[in-house]
Amino acid sequence: MESWEILLQQVINGVSLGAMYALLALGFTMVYGIIELINFAHFNIFMVGSFIAMWVMQLMGFTGQSHVLYGLPLTAMLVFVLCVTMVATGVLGALIERFGLRALRGVSGTAPMITTIGLSYILFNVILLGAGADTKNYSNPMPNIRWEFGDAVLHLRELILWGVSLVLMLALHYFVRRTKMGKAMQATAQDQEAARMVGVDVDRVVIITFFIGSALAGAAGVIFGLYYNYTNFGIGYTAGLRAFTAAVLGGIGNIPGAMLGGVLIGLIESLGGQYLAVRWTDVIIFSILVLVLVFRPTGLLGRASPTKS
C-alpha cells in the first residue's frame, strides 16, 4: 500500500469509530450539561444496547451472516432494529434516572456518581449472568459491497453507519434548538432554578435527557455490533472511556463538542494505531484526557456549565 492509501484507509476507519464515539459521548455530555453528573451507567447501557439489537435480529431470524438484504428491505430492517433498541435503552436510562438517581438529586459530593458506577455494575452482571461471558458473533444483514480507492477500501456498511450517526445527530440538533422541550433543556442547563421559575418541569427535562442520551447509546451499541461483527459483556468499558474522553475533549456539557470530540478520538485511535502501535492507543487517548483536564478543562468548544449569570 502507498502511504496515501494507508492514510485514507485509517481516516475511513477513524470516522467510523468516531461516529460511534460521538453518539456515545452525547449521552455523557447531555446529562452532565443538565445536572452536572457523570453517568457511568452509560457505558453499560451502550453494551446492553448491542445485545438487545442482536437479540431482536435473532428473533427476526438473522443469525451471524446468514441472510443478506438489499435496498428497501435492508433499510426497513435496520430502521426497525435501531428503533426497537433505542426505545429499549432509552427506557432503561429513564428507569435508572427515576428509580436509581432521582432520590439523590441535589445531594452534593460524589454519592450520585458512585451510584452510577454501582448501577453500571448491575447491568454488566445481568448481561454476564444472563448471556454468558463468551463473545457473540453478531447478526449482520448488510451486503459486502465495497469501493476501492487504490488499496484503501470503503464498505457499504461504513457508509450506512456514518449515515445513521449523521441523521441521529442532526435530529438531536433540531430537537434541542427548535422544539419546546429542547429549549427547556437548554434553559435547565443554563440556570435550573430560573427554568423552574418560568414553569419548566425540571424532573421531566432530566428524565427525557436520560432517555435521549441512552437511546443514542443504544444506537452506538448497534453500530458497534454491525461494525465489528461481535459483541461481548465487556465492550462498555473501552468504548465508554473513549467516548467519555471525547466528551471532555469537546467540552463536557457541550453538544457540538461531543460530536467533534468523538470524531477526533476515532481518528486518533485509528491513525495512532497505524503510525505508532495499537498497544499505544489507550496511552495516547488517556494522555489526551489528562492533558485536556490539566491545560484546558473547558475542552475545545467550551464547557457548558450552568452559570448563574
Binding site: Q186, A187, Q190, D191, A195, V198, G199, K308
Partner: peptide
C-alpha cells in the same frame, strides 16, 4: 436570572413556556 446563552428573544419566549 436570565438564561445567559440564549438570545433576548429566546428569553422572552421562555417566559411564555
Amino acid at each position: 436570572r436570565l438564561f445567559p446563552r440564549m438570545t433576548v428573544l429566546e428569553n422572552l419566549e421562555m417566559g411564555a413556556f
